[in-house]
Amino acid sequence: MRAIGGLWRWRHNPLRRTSDLVEAWLALVALLLILVVAPVIGSLVGGIAQDALQQSVRDQHASRHLVTATVVRKLDRSPLDTDPETSTSRDLRSRVVADWTAPDGTGHHGTALAGLKSPHHGDHFKIWTDAHGSIVAQPLDPATATTHAVLAGFGAAMLTAGAVEGGRRLILWRMVRRRYARWDQAWDRAGPDWGRTGTGS
């Protein structure tokens, strides 16, 4: 991006090459694209993601129901939990056998995760189910959906900026290679006797 400052210096400089101006203009265009186009693309992607995620939130809240389950008995700790000293969010939930009634009125009996530290027979806890009583994950909340949409928009803007900068560097690399090739051709035309008397130099 230092080449942008060269636009003004190169305007009337007798040492200016066409490639110097092209390089400076290329840097300026890339900067404008990063400052203008990347945020616009990020905003569009974020808006699309927000609409889709909020629709998903509405769909999940419409199809998932919070019901009350009753503990029948507590199950032993999962064999995968080898370290009882590990403090995780699972430590706040216990695997239990429970009974619950689905939104359609049918009774269900099965294994569930209870948000109880020490569940006992007859304790009540909340679980999310579908309309037929099958246990499902908690629906996405609007704040989390918005966070995901913002991250998607930011990621899209960063990818756009990276693509623009990568394109600028690729074009610049090709220009430098072409410049070196022209120098090699000029050197070959000068021949091995350049600078000697009678060569015309």
Rank of each mutant, 00 (worst) to 15 (best):
V67T: 05
V67C: 10
T68N: 02
A69S: 03
A69R: 05
T70V: 10
V71W: 05
V71D: 03
V71S: 08
V72T: 07
R73Q: 11
K74N: 10
K74W: 02
L75K: 11
L75S: 07
D76C: 00
D76Q: 15
D76A: 15
D76I: 05
D76Y: 08
D76P: 14
D76T: 11
R77H: 05
R77G: 02
S78N: 10
P79G: 07
P79I: 13
P79L: 05
L80I: 11
L80N: 11
L80F: 13
D81W: 12
D81H: 11
T82H: 12
D83L: 10
D83P: 10
P84Y: 07
P84C: 00
P84M: 00
E85F: 12
E85D: 14
T86C: 00
S87R: 15
T88R: 13
T88V: 09
S89Q: 14
S89G: 04
S89K: 15
S89L: 12
S89A: 15
S89H: 11
R90Q: 15
R90N: 10
R90F: 14
D91V: 14
D91G: 11
L92D: 11
L92P: 00
L92V: 02
L92E: 09
R93H: 12
R93P: 01
S94Q: 13
S94M: 01
S94I: 01
R95N: 06
R95L: 10
R95I: 00
V96D: 02
V96N: 02
V96H: 06
V97K: 06
V97M: 12
V97Q: 14
A98Q: 07
A98E: 03
D99T: 13
D99P: 01
D99I: 03
D99V: 09
D99S: 08
D99N: 14
W100V: 02
W100M: 00
W100D: 00
W100K: 00
T101Y: 11
T101D: 04
A102T: 03
A102P: 01
A102Q: 01
A102W: 03
A102R: 07
P103C: 05
P103L: 04
P103Q: 04
P103K: 08
D104N: 15
D104I: 07
D104P: 03
G105N: 07
G105L: 10
T106M: 01
T106G: 13
G107A: 15
G107Y: 04
G107R: 15
G107V: 07
H108S: 13
H108M: 05
H109Q: 03
H109N: 06
H109E: 02
G110D: 03
G110I: 05
G110R: 04
G110Q: 05
T111D: 10
T111I: 15
T111F: 08
A112S: 13
A112I: 04
A112F: 07
L113Y: 14
L113H: 13
L113T: 03
L113A: 12
L113S: 14
A114N: 03
G115D: 15
